[in-house]
């Protein structure tokens, strides 16, 4: 009886210990990223490809010869091999820009995804306090101006910068003042403090220190902004270009330089960079994964083909690759 009990408990005990050790080991080899929901689609697609590790012959998912890479190694083996590393798993978590940056700073993750530069996310801190962060720009996002379908159909296909500023300041309150129907304007903003809101203020007002009194409601996620514009018949908002549809069409803008831009144009004035930050330099492990995303292959597959974001120009790509440690 006594023996049985000891045996039973030993079994349970061993199970717990082995689970704990397994957990500790599993944590060891993994590259972790966390942060902005805006950067998430890029990072998580890249991680999915990395973890699946397709062979070189698999031209649908890898096919290195199409990108001028001469190798017969599988995807992750090749990129990790550039630094002489064995392959490892990549786990991408989803939170907010500020959370991702805090986590990378505390060493809880290796890469912090952020939709705004770190100096905008932590405005209280001076340059020296932020010097630990290394910025890697992986793609560009265009923030669209999107209106309810009823407004677009009634003829509001563009707005000038002055009109937009007046709308956000609450000086223009009816669509009929800007070539639209006689209907009050409902302005949908983003949560204050979010990366999106910060970049919007910088791009439109030139500073974050404004109080756009015309904003009627604020929503925490792009998805909620989109839903609110669709649900209403009088709304304007500024979701990421990923969150524009025929139900909430994007409008053009006529900007300071007198040119009219549509959201797909390279010169679209509401651009912002999407960042993946590392802390205390960039380790070879981090660099291997970032190099994949920054490569021609990564820009095409993870940015161009799987999101509505915009890939880096060739010069920007070179600039970003130069930040990473030298390959072996």
């Amino acid at each position: 009886m006594q023996f049985k009990r000891i045996a039973g408990f030993s079994a349970v005990f061993l199970l717990i210990i082995s689970l704990l050790t397994l957990g500790a080991f599993a944590k060891e080899g993994v590259l972790r990223a966390n942060g902005s929901s805006t950067v998430y689609p890029i990072a998580s697609t890249a991680a999915a490809y990395w973890n699946a590790n397709p062979p070189a012959a698999d031209t649908e998912y890898w096919g290195p010869e199409n990108y001028g890479i001469d190798t017969d190694e599988s995807l992750a083996d090749y990129w990790a091999g550039l630094y002489g590393l064995d392959t490892f798993n990549v786990v991408v978590g989803l939170s907010h820009s500020g959370v991702g940056l805090t986590k990378v700073e505390n060493g809880q993750v290796d890469i912090g995804n952020s939709s705004a530069a770190v100096e905008y996310e932590f405005p209280d801190r001076d340059e020296e306090e932020l010097s630990g962060f290394t910025d890697h720009v992986v793609a560009k996002d265009h923030q669209a101006f999107s209106v309810s379908k009823e407004i677009y159909d009634a003829g509001v296909e563009f707005l000038t910068k002055d009109e937009l500023v007046a709308i956000f300041h609450g000086e223009i309150t009816n669509w009929k003042q800007v070539r639209g129907p006689d209907r009050e304007i409902q302005v949908v903003g983003r949560a204050v403090g979010s990366g999106t809101e910060t970049m919007f203020r910088i791009n439109v007002f030139g500073t974050t220190d404004v109080d756009p009194a015309g904003v009627d409601i604020r929503k925490g996620q792009n998805q909620m902004v989109k839903q609110t514009i669709i649900q209403s018949d009088n709304a304007i908002g500024y979701p990421g270009v990923d969150f524009v549809s025929s139900e909430n069409p994007a409008i053009d803008v006529v900007w300071d330089d007198g040119n009219r831009y549509s959201v797909e144009d390279a010169g679209w004035p509401l651009g912002r960079e999407l960042h993946m930050y590392t802390y205390q330099g960039t380790s070879e492990k981090e660099a291997a994964f970032l190099r994949l995303i920054l490569s021609d292959f990564g820009q095409k597959v993870f940015v161009e083909e799987s999101t509505d974001y915009y890939p880096l120009s060739e010069a920007e790509q070179e600039e970003q690759l130069a930040i990473l440690p030298e390959t072996k």
Partner: peptide
């Protein structure tokens, strides 16, 4: 439109710093 104490915390804690 407005804000309550609970929704303030829920909507801003993710983006807050300092």
């Amino acid at each position: 439109p407005g804000e309550s104490l609970t929704s303030l915390i829920a909507s801003q804690i993710g983006e807050a710093s300092g």
